[in-house]
Design a protein around this nucleic acid. Structure first.
Lengths: 218, 218
DNA sequence: TCACGATGTATCGACTCGATACGTCGTGAC
DNA sequence: GTCACGACGTATCGAGTCGATACATCGTGA
């Protein structure tokens, strides 16, 4: 799923690795944080498969012996030769990459709503059509409800022999998941309303409020 | 941290791998789920370091050639020779293991409140003394507050160029962490009250209510 | 009788993280 | 002036982890 995130970000603008990682971790907020040990191999793989390409703008290396020991002395070549710091490697989507991204963003199978994928898919909902959005949200909701059920049942079978702290940990975990389900409910409702409003009456373009109208649901 | 969880569970009773994993995943609830690919190497390492030992009760292998190809034919040796299914490998804490576990449970350094350790430490709070519990809860709280601050600041610097869904994802992530902080607040309060009550007045043993009195703080 | 699922031990490949290395550049303390 | 420090920037390594899988036993029920 890192790959999808990379493609999604590069779809807006070409970026180099460092910036890519910053935006990635901003995008996913407090959910996940990818490290360079994950990012660079993924970039390499994407290049190898022709989905992205490197465009070495602002590279100070003249030609040949690119990453050699490059003797000191290039320091005096004036400051800011183009505009950036140093030879960064800027990545850009290829035509294949764009196509692949569209395919992925249009998919709404089980893979889209598993733990490790959902937040990335959600982050690019703006590039996903409404039907797919709803299907993914509903799939995610079902997935969480199932898990809730499994944990509850499993806990019911072994309740008596757990100490208070373990119990509290379980209670808190369940509560977090329940809250997540309610969050999804709000999003689904908003999406449905939007879809209906758009279909039924699209002349009065006033109530086009975005998806976070579900703030004050205690 | 898997190791601490294993030692903590084996401190109550000797267990075999399969049962250990079940309890592990019940213990950590919806937080984490360790797989066998993690569990068995960890067990092996613990045995090698002398913190746990195997006691092969209920083993059908007679002697020698223990894990050899064991020809079919042992099937007719009567059902339920002892009580269990098959030769399981039961693990048990050694004296060194008990000592090590006590040392770990008494520690309250930064390692105790990081993401990957906190829930395991919390799950064994019943075996941890009150002072350590409070220190870990407060450390965890500080950690989360710092992260909250960092994400908020980082988001403030780049707010304008994010679409509604990304924004909503961030908002939701922040809210989850805020809720976690409030949960910790409730636990810390409860722990402080308990410590005070125990010190000031320990004759009226009626109000010894456990730690989940913070349910209806919404 | 025999397929299936629960129980049980064990490993492999792929992925990810955190630490680290190496290097450039701007800034501010002294 | 210089030089330490931190931001920027690319890259890899070891350790830990997951999911899938393999293999084997046993009870149950079609």
């Amino acid at each position: 799923m890192l790959e999808t995130a990379i493609l999604g970000l590069l779809n807006s603008a070409p970026l180099h690795g460092y910036e890519l990682r910053k935006r990635l971790n901003l995008l996913l907020g407090s959910f996940r944080a990818f490290s360079y040990g994950t990012l660079y191999p993924a970039l390499k793989s994407l290049v190898a498969r022709g989905l992205i390409e490197t465009t070495e703008r602002e590279a100070p290396a003249p030609a040949g012996r690119a990453s050699g020991t490059r003797q000191a002395g290039a320091k005096s070549s004036g400051k800011a030769p183009l505009s950036g710091r140093r030879g960064r490697i800027v990545y850009r989507l290829t035509a294949d990459g764009k196509e692949h991204l569209q395919t992925v963003l249009a998919s709404s199978g089980p893979a889209a709503w598993e733990d490790e994928n959902f937040d990335v898919r959600f982050a690019f909902f703006a590039q996903t059509d409404a039907e797919t959005r709803i299907r993914i949200l509903e799939g995610r909701r079902t997935r969480l409800t199932e898990r809730l059920e499994a944990v509850r049942e499993s806990a019911a079978r072994t309740r008596e022999r757990l100490d208070e702290y373990t119990l509290e940990l379980q209670r808190h975990g369940l509560e977090q998941v329940e809250r997540e389900v309610r969050w999804l409910d709000g999003l689904i409702t908003t999406e449905r309303d939007r879809a209906l409003g758009r279909a039924r009456d699209h002349s009065a373009g006033a109530q086009d409020a975005p998806a976070q109208r579900n703030k004050e649901r205690g």
